[in-house]
Design a binder for these strands. Structure first.
Lengths: 131, 131
DNA sequence: ATGATACTGAAGCATATACTTCAGTATTGT
DNA sequence: ACAATACTGAAGTATATGCTTCAGTATCAT
């Protein structure tokens, strides 16, 4: 069975670079295009309102972030997505989500338990305090 | 029933700002702290190796991205996470993932179907390393 | 061989980021 | 009242980002 985790993680690329790479709409457009299949630099550039040079620079950001891989054959550079990096970015958020879901569950429980009391206190502090 | 989607989405904050906000390790640290419960600005600043002013500036980035909300009571500003923005960021990646998973499924199917043939098609490969 | 194609790479430039320090302003504790 | 606390906001500065243009260098097609 072919797994998309199959490629060697090589280096655990820092989330800094991954999120930074995704922060640009042009780069997200490139990723979006690449999730539909491999593409050349020129194809990636085609819908974008900027020079080829600029696109190549964006591509470098994506490659440095480990989101995209490319190789040249003849004069054409073909690019494709590497799922692992995006997966790491998704996972970081998912991990936090388990926390805040629990937090909201606790808040919900608290509100249910004290529904007869004054709820409109001015602070969210009222719900929980720690440290 | 209290839902964490309950808060009004107000504006659909652009992914640019959300990913940009997450690109900084200090800000991710702040989010991480806030997923464990509300905190004051000073509490957020405590583990970070920078001035309070810097932390307040990071907080502004998180608020502009819709990731964090805060309000002041007396002289204390208390902050908490707003799940919606992070959920949007997670969702964007999840949406792409369905594409590349399908893509890999197709590749897998292709490989299975043509396992007796030459695998080295020219599409992505050549396995040319050149840099 | 010649020209078109597909990049590559260096410079330059305007704006954005990530801080710093310093000088305030309300609140709160004693 | 007075000092400590918890920020707030303006400047200033160094580096990073997101482009541009221009001048190449390899292919590839004819």
């Amino acid at each position: 069975m072919l797994q998309y985790h199959a490629s060697p993680p090589a280096a655990p690329i820092p989330l800094d670079l991954i999120y930074q790479a995704l922060a640009d709409p042009g780069r997200r457009g490139m990723v979006e295009r690449l999730t539909r299949g491999p593409a050349t630099v020129t194809q990636l550039a085609e819908p974008l309102p900027m020079s080829l040079s600029a696109v190549v620079q964006h591509l470098k950001v994506l490659e440095d972030a480990g989101i995209v891989r490319s190789q040249k054959t003849g004069r054409v550079r073909t690019c494709q997505v590497i799922p692992a990096a995006l997966h790491a970015a998704e996972q970081w958020i998912a991990d936090r989500r388990t926390f805040w879901e629990r937090q909201y569950d606790q808040l919900e429980a608290y509100l249910n338990a004290s529904s007869s009391e004054a709820i409109g206190n001015q602070e969210m502090n009222g719900a929980k305090d720690q440290e």
